[in-house]
Design a protein around this nucleic acid. Structure first.
Lengths: 200, 200
DNA sequence: GACTTGAGTGAAGGATCACTCATATTCTGT
DNA sequence: ACAGAATATGAGTGATCCTTCACTCAAGTC
C-alpha cells in the first residue's frame, strides 16, 4: 500500500514575497489544469508558469496533491462567499426569483473554470480533501437553511440540487449552449422542489 | 506542439483469442480506472491485470488514449442500447411513469461505474473521441424523439436532461444516498420539462 | 513437411517527472 | 551595518512509465 499523499502545507509564508510565491503557484496550477487537464499538471510546469523555481514550490507544498488541496479549498471558499452574498440579498424575494438569483451565482462560478472544477471534484474523493469539503459543507448548510426557511426541503435536497446544477452547467458549457442557462437551471431546481414536496 | 494522441486501433483482431485479448485489455482498463483513477491507469498495469504482455497491448492499440477511446465507445453503446430497450417498452405509459422508467435506466447504468464514467466524460473532450460521441449522439436523438412525440421538448432539452442526470447521479453515488434516486431524478426531469413548456 | 501469417513476449531505450539539496540572495530586527 | 532568518535557485537524482523491436510460438495452407 502506498502512503496517502500529504496535502497539508509544509510551512506558511511569513514575508509578503513568500505569500506572492504561494499565490503564484496556486494560480499557475489553476491555469494549467483548466488548459491542459491533469495530464499537463506537473510540478515543473507549474513552477515554470508561476515564474518560480521548482525548489521554491517544494518549500511550501509537500507534493503536487497539496497544491490541488489548496486550490480546491480556494475554489470552494470563493463559491461559498459568492453564494453567501446572494443569499443575503434575496431575503424578501419570491421563491422563483430567489432561486433564479442563486442559479445565476452557480452559473457564474462554474462557467469561469468548468474544467478545473470538474477535475477538482474528481480528485476530492481520491485525496481526503477535508479543508475543501469543510467549505463545501458550509455551502450546503447555507442552501439547506434557505430551503427549510421556505419549507422547500432540507440538506438532502440541497445536495441534490447542487450536484444536479453542476452536471447541467458543465454540460452546457461543454457544448456551448450557455444562453438562458440560469433560467434552464431554475426550471430543474424549482421543478425538483415542487415535485419533492408533493412526494410524487 | 505535441501531436494529438492516436486513438484508432492499430489492427483488428482476426482470430477468436485475439478478440479475447482486446476484450481483456479493455475490461482491465475499466477496472483500473474505476478503482484507481487516471493516476493508476498505465499500460503496464493494464497489461498485467489483463494477463497479457505489454507487447500484445501495443499490437492492437497505438497508445493508452486509444484504449480510453475504445472504452468510451463501449460504455456509450451500452447505455444507448439499454435506453433503446426501455424506450421500446414505454410507448403507452403516461409521461411520469415513462420518465421514471428512463430515469431508472440512467441510474442503473451510471451507478455501476460512476468513477469510470466521470473520467471518460472528462477525457472525451481532450481527445476527440468521435466514435463515443457518435453513440452518445444516437442516445440524444432517441431521447429527443421521445420528448417531441409527447410535445415536451427537443434536442436541447434532451441534452440538458442527460447532463443534469449525470450530475445528480454522480453526486448521490459519491455520498452514498442512492435510495429513491430514480424518483428524485424524475422530479428534476419532470419539473424541468413542465416549467420549460410554460417558459417561465 | 515447408511455408505463411496471426498472435504473443519481455528486455531495453528513452523520456518525463517528482522531489532533494547545496548554495545564493533578500529581508528584518537591532 | 550586521547577523541570522527567511526565501529563492536549479542542476541533479532516481523512479516510473510509454513504447519499440527482435524474437518465439501456434495454427492453418499448400
Amino acid at each position: 500500500m502506498a502512503d496517502p499523499p500529504a496535502v497539508v502545507p509544509r510551512k506558511r509564508p511569513r514575508q509578503a514575497r513568500a505569500a506572492a510565491t504561494v499565490e503564484a503557484i496556486i494560480e499557475a496550477s489553476a491555469r494549467i489544469l483548466e488548459a491542459e487537464g491533469l495530464a499537463g499538471f506537473n510540478t515543473n510546469a507549474v513552477a515554470a508558469l508561476a515564474g518560480v523555481s521548482i525548489g521554491s514550490l517544494y518549500q511550501y507544498f509537500p507534493g503536487k496533491e497539496a497544491i490541488l488541496a489548496a486550490l480546491a479549498r480556494r475554489e470552494a471558499e470563493a463559491f461559498d462567499a459568492a453564494l453567501g452574498v446572494a443569499l443575503g440579498e434575496i431575503g424578501d424575494l419570491g421563491t422563483p426569483s430567489a432561486v433564479a438569483r442563486l442559479a445565476q451565482v452557480a452559473v457564474d462560478h462554474q462557467t469561469r473554470h468548468t474544467r478545473l472544477a470538474r477535475i477538482l471534484d474528481l480528485e476530492e474523493q481520491r485525496l481526503g480533501l477535508t479543508e475543501a469539503q469543510a467549505a463545501a459543507g458550509r455551502t450546503v448548510q447555507a442552501i439547506a437553511e434557505f430551503l427549510s426557511d421556505r419549507h422547500l426541503g432540507g440538506e438532502a435536497a440541497a445536495l441534490d440540487i447542487l450536484h444536479l446544477s453542476r452536471g447541467l452547467i458543465d454540460g452546457a458549457v461543454e457544448r456551448g449552449t450557455t444562453e438562458g442557462l440560469a433560467r434552464r437551471l431554475s426550471w430543474a431546481i424549482l421543478g425538483y422542489l415542487a415535485l419533492s414536496r408533493q412526494g410524487s
